[in-house]
Structures are given as C-alpha cells and as structure tokens.
Amino acid sequence: MSSVIAKPVMRGLLAKRLRLHLAVAFTLSIACAGAFKVAVGDSRKKAYADFYKKYDAMKSFEAMRDAGIFESVKPRK
C-alpha cells in the first residue's frame, strides 16, 4: 500500500520565512549591540573618566616642554 505524499504549500512561503528571519535578525542585532555597549562602551567610558580625574594638563605640558617635543616653546633650564 502506497500513501500519497501531500504537496508542499508554496504560496506565501517566502513571505512567511522572511518574517521569521527578519524577526530573528532584528532580535540578535539588538542583543549584540547591547552586549557590546555593556562590555566595551561602559568600560571604556569608565577608563576615560578615571584617567581624566587624575590628569593634570599643565604637568603634562611641562613634561613635554622639558623633553623638547615642542618646536615653538623653549625648554626650561
């Protein structure tokens, strides 16, 4: 006894699969963006804030001036 295999439904198949794939892609992209923000963005923002809490621009300028980096400023003797 042979059974008859039903024909696959082809009408609307692309639209149905596209909706599913777009929803999955959108969800994954939002999740990856959030993970990147938490893992990289927040830690980088904290590192910059910590650096500039202790940063003294005049002290840095004087160190570079004494090292002779600037051509327009003479080093102190």
Rank of each mutant, 00 (worst) to 15 (best):
A25H: 07
F36M: 08
K37Y: 14
F51V: 08
I5W: 09
D42M: 10
D42I: 09
A67F: 13
D42N: 15
V4E: 13
Y52V: 02
I69F: 14
R76W: 01
S29I: 07
K45S: 07
M64Y: 12
R19P: 00
K7I: 03
G41Q: 09
I30H: 02
A31V: 13
K74R: 14
K16N: 05
V38G: 10
A15E: 06
V4S: 03
D66C: 06
R17C: 05
L20S: 07
F61N: 05
E62C: 02
A6M: 04
T27I: 10
K7W: 00
K16T: 09
P75D: 04
D42E: 11
K16M: 05
K77Y: 02
V9T: 11
A47M: 11
P75L: 04
A31M: 09
F70R: 03
G12V: 07
L28Q: 15
R17Q: 11
S2N: 10
A67R: 15
V9W: 09
V9L: 10
K16L: 05
G12R: 00
G34Q: 05
A67D: 14
S72H: 12
V40K: 12
S29T: 15
I69W: 10
L18N: 08
K54G: 12
I5E: 13
R44K: 07
D66P: 00
A63K: 15
A49C: 03
S43N: 11
K45D: 04
A6E: 07
F61H: 06
K59M: 05
A39F: 12
I69A: 08
F70N: 01
K54S: 15
G12W: 03
S60D: 11
V9A: 11
D42C: 06
C32H: 05
K54L: 14
A63E: 15
D42K: 09
K53E: 13
F26N: 02
L13R: 14
K77M: 07
K53S: 10
F70L: 08
Y55E: 08
R17S: 06
K37R: 13
K7G: 04
V40N: 10
A47N: 10
K74L: 08
T27Q: 07
F36L: 11
K54F: 10
A35Y: 10
V38P: 02
E71Q: 09
E71T: 13
E62W: 01
A6P: 01
R65W: 02
K46M: 11
K53P: 02
K77A: 09
A39Q: 11
S43C: 06
F70G: 00
A67P: 05
F26D: 02
G12Q: 10
V24K: 13
D50F: 14
M10Q: 05
M1N: 12
